[in-house]
Nucleic acid binder design. Structure first.
Length: 506
RNA sequence: GCGGCCGUCGUCUAGCCUGGCUAAGACGUCAGCCUUCCAAGCUGAAGAUCCCGGGUUCGAAUCCCGGCGGCCGCACCA
């Protein structure tokens, strides 16, 4: 299965088994919003946990949880208000809509028109006599599209408020206190998992482009005079596929394959700090089940980059359904944000070096779209076996870690199975008890939601209290004492043991 | 926003062209029986605003118009 068919199969499975589905369906639906069900919520949580394990915990970075709604002055200072809008024009004859700045660039041969501001765009449209490139018709007056959601804070319409389009500003606004809590030493990072909103013109492709979604962001603060990242050596031998800015500009399609060490040396990646997180990023995505050959990093061209970034690499993953899609952005934000907030707020955000000099830290930011990762994990795991569906999710992110079932529903087998189920739950595992239908059907149901292990209570269990463990991917079985399951299954789920080590083969 | 395609139980589909019984089937779900390891079988049950609104007609899931929603392409994705 490939292409759209695969996407449709996953969307159907997601709805049928309760991973996710479109929101507001009883009111006719609304594009760009999805609701997670039980399995989807668990899968999402497990991916969050994995992210912390790779990005936050190893260096003791600090996590924050900051407001979604922000007052106007935050996004005025950050530049979002200025840059998060597009000026559009419509052809009065054929009704096609264009971005005004792109039109001017093409028709008048200018560059970076967006940065010139709205007034300049209006003026240029008039001065250059620009017409519709498709049909030559007259164009409408330029109109603004603000892609941030706006509301009023306070019941009587007090202050304009905006839903954040990224979580990062929360980290910059709280930099001072965060820095203090990190014992005032660089480098350190503030991280956040949270909802953000973007009023996309055209949300599409299920979880891949939403109007409200969850982002996992980390802002690493470092001294720009300190070029060496102390952790970089851990990943410098990691090889990555790169499409550099130059390659992008010249239209190269085949990526360069280099180690991160070489990429920094050659100047493809501007700082070790950013390169470090690109290496972690690759390992993280591999951990979610995406093979390295289906990953690459693609540089943004200057006009494609966000206003705050001086270098951005998108981490892309290859999907059978949609081709290469972006799942993370690695941006070098320099001191852009701290400088902006320092200026707008009047609060000193500089920190002190050992020699007494003061400076604004620089920032590199890895930023993941969690919902996209949920979809990617599902699609990459999706298999067909003998006409049945198997979700070969890595066991550490599987929503249900084990299913306990009696071989038949009589002779005391269900009772014993329920006891084992209870023990495993008490041991902190996410376990389901299942007795509907035949044993084969139950295995198939569990395969379809990616449960890695099935525990079956049979007649021998009544004699010697051993059970069979059945592997989702190979269908092999081993036998083990019930009392040892909590310990063994926990280490299996964590990846500390392989299936063969769980018992005697059958 | 433009263009193309589409919208029927939880899911997948039949019916629509050529208007006419209580909208059919499979899967799933529920109850019961059966069942000693890979979606077995039997009996019964529940489950559909046929996307919404209007029009045509004696009669609309079916024809017409409008809207909403979805998918794809273009544009957009800071």
């Amino acid at each position: 299965m490939e292409g759209r068919e695969l996407h449709e199969a996953i969307m159907e499975l997601a709805r049928r088994r309760g991973f996710f589905w479109p929101s507001f369906e009883i009111y006719g639906g609304l594009r760009g919003f999805y609701t997670y069900g039980n399995l989807g919520t668990k899968l999402k949580r497990n991916i969050e946990k994995a992210w912390r394990r790779f990005f936050v915990d190893p260096h003791g970075f600090l996590e924050l949880d900051t407001p979604v709604l922000n007052p106007l002055r935050v996004f005025k200072a950050s530049g979002h208000l200025e840059h998060f809008k597009d000026v559009m024009v419509e052809c009065l004859k054929c009704h096609r809509v264009f971005r005004a700045d792109h039109l001017i660039e093409e028709e008048a041969g200018l560059e970076y028109v967006e940065a010139m501001g709205e007034e300049a765009i209006r003026r240029l449209l008039r001065e250059k006599g620009i017409r519709c490139p498709e049909c030559g018709g007259d164009l409408s007056e330029p109109q603004e599209f603000l892609t941030m959601f706006q509301t009023q804070i306070g019941p009587m319409g007090g202050e304009p408020g905006f839903a954040r389009p990224e979580a990062a500003q929360g980290m910059f606004l709280n930099f001072k206190l965060g820095f203090h809590h990190a014992r005032e030493r660089l480098p350190f990072a503030l991280a956040q998992i949270g909802k953000v909103m973007r009023n996309e013109i055209s949300p599409r492709r299920g979880l891949l482009r939403l109007r409200e979604f969850t982002i996992m962001e980390l802002e690493l603060f470092f001294d720009p005079q300190e070029g060496q990242c102390p952790w970089f050596k851990e990943v410098s031998d990691e090889s990555v596929k790169l499409i550099t800015e130059e390659m992008e500009a010249e239209g190269f399609k085949e990526p360069l394959e280099v180690t991160l060490g070489e990429a920094v040396e050659s100047g493809y990646i501007k700082t070790e700090w950013q390169a470090y997180f690109m290496g972690v990023s690759k390992r993280f995505i591999t951990y979610l089940g995406v093979p390295p050959e289906r990953q690459r990093f693609r540089a943004h061209l200057p006009e494609e980059r966000s206003h705050y970034s001086t270098q951005t690499y998108d981490h892309e993953v290859y999907l059978e359904s949609w081709g290469w899609i972006e799942i993370a952005g690695h941006a070098y934000r320099t001191d852009y944000d701290l400088k902006a907030h320092q200026k707008a707020s009047g609060v000193d955000l500089t920190v002190r070096r050992a020699d007494g000099s003061r400076f604004l830290p620089h920032v590199v930011e890895p930023s993941f779209g969690l919902d996209r990762l949920v979809y990617v994990a599902l699609e990459v795991a999706y298999r067909k076996r003998d006409g049945r569906t198997v979700l070969a999710l890595p066991r550490w992110i599987a929503p249900i870690q084990a299913a306990v079932m009696p071989l038949v529903t009589r002779d005391g087998l269900p009772e014993r199975a329920r006891e084992i189920w209870s023990q495993l739950k008490d041991a902190g595992l996410t376990v389901e008890y299942e007795e509907k239908g035949s044993i084969g059907k139950r295995y198939a149901r569990q395969d379809e939601i990616g449960t890695p292990i099935a525990v079956t209570v049979d007649y021998q269990t009544l004699e010697d209290d051993t059970v069979t463990l059945r592997d989702r991917d190979s269908w092999r079985q081993v036998r083990q004492e019930a009392s040892r399951l909590p310990e063994l299954l926990r280490s299996y789920i964590n990846g500390e043991r392989e299936f063969d080590e769980l018992g005697r083969p059958l």
